[in-house]
């Protein structure tokens, strides 16, 4: 069985986004080689839920977020948003669909046009889509700026560089909200911010989510932040999903050895706690020629021969907790799959 399985997909009428067998590959020049950025992942997000996607650089988490927006369209796979198949939409229809899914990026300063004033930046989506009269648009912009904690008066007079990083991220959030989207994809929205400002932005996202009935996909490499904001977390490694679980459960009972590594790498703000040494050596291998079997096997302390040849499939080890591992830390060994040989 290829891919990492779909056991964790839910058959719920509240599913807002359902991604199946998503594959994103980028060819490398004319070498015939390709970067396997995302290799057959599936997940779903319910209305009002926050899905966290966590993993190291190069695991495909950002590519996944962008593939949902068709930026660029995936190599194969299905992305259903609110009942519409996004991959088969025409350019114009996709543009329209993007008003319902918005993105926030990592670097708040470079994602805002430095030469325009902040109020115009937030106004632009409304002008493009001709929503209401000019006066109504401006009123909507001022209202949303107030919501995210930016003084509209100052926004009308200032350019992005006159604001701090945290404030620029608030402006990005305002811009993404102004079209009243159903879902926001946040790609490392707080990684570039100071810890104290991080907390402000995370709290703001939580408030806005309630107020605007948003569904969030929160992509980050810092499991502590992801855990705090998410209802459900998918851990990615080298283009595959290794574990899916509710966020509290993931922290209490990590099942995949890689999840445990991620958890133990987070610095503990307490000098009396000895630094746990479950850290792995090295870095993820190249996604150009990913290892056979389980993709984590070259760095995994528990790897066996089976891990080097047979790719694990996501399976449920307790209600709502899924892992793709032959020898998980909890939940018992994977049953040996019946092969026709």
């Amino acid at each position: 069985m290829a891919g990492t399985g779909k056991a964790h997909l839910r058959d719920d009428k509240n599913v807002l986004l359902r991604v199946e067998d998503l594959v994103v590959e980028f060819p490398i020049g004319r070498t015939g080689l390709k970067v396997n950025a995302v290799s057959g992942i599936s997940f779903d997000v319910l209305k009002g839920e926050t899905l966290g996607i966590v993993g190291e650089s190069g695991c495909g988490k950002s590519t996944t977020g962008r593939a949902i927006m068709q930026l660029p369209s995936p190599t194969s796979g299905s992305i259903k948003f609110d009942g519409t198949e996004l991959t088969s939409l025409s350019g114009e229809a996709m543009r329209e669909a993007r008003t319902k899914i918005q993105m926030i990026f990592q670097d708040p300063i470079s994602s805002l046009n430095p030469r325009r004033n902040v109020r115009d930046i937030v106004l632009e989506p409304l002008t493009i889509w001709n929503r209401g009269t000019k006066a109504e648009q401006l009123a909507a912009v001022d209202k949303i700026l107030e919501h995210v904690g930016i003084d509209p008066q100052r926004a009308a007079e200032s350019k992005p560089h006159q604001f701090s990083g945290g404030q620029c991220q608030r402006i990005s959030i305002a811009r993404s909200l102004v079209l009243n989207p159903q879902m926001i994809i946040c790609d490392e929205p707080v990684s570039a911010l100071d810890v104290s400002v991080q907390a402000q932005v995370v709290n703001l996202l939580e408030d806005l989510k309630k107020e605007f009935e948003l569904t969030l996909v929160f992509i980050a490499h810092d499991l502590a932040v992801v855990k705090n904001i998410s209802d459900r977390i998918a851990v990615m490694y080298l283009g595959k999903i290794c574990e899916v679980s509710s966020s509290d459960d993931l922290y209490r009972n990590p099942a995949h050895p890689y999840t445990e590594v991620l958890l133990s790498s987070i610095p503990v703000p307490d000098p009396t706690v000895a630094v746990k040494k479950i850290s792995v050596d090295g870095e993820p291998p190249s996604p150009v020629s990913p290892p056979a079997g389980c993709r984590f096997n070259p760095r995994c302390p528990n790897a066996s021969d089976r891990c080097r040849s047979e790719e694990p499939t996501l399976r449920e080890i307790e209600p709502g907790h899924f892992v793709a591992c032959h020898h998980p830390l909890t939940g018992g060994e994977a049953p040996v799959s019946v092969r026709s040989n």
Partner: peptide
């Protein structure tokens, strides 16, 4: 500063102090 660090041992959706 210390209390603004998100902690793993807090349940998810805890209000972060800022």
């Amino acid at each position: 500063l210390l209390s603004s660090i998100p902690r793993l041992d807090q349940p998810s959706h805890s209000r972060l102090s800022t």
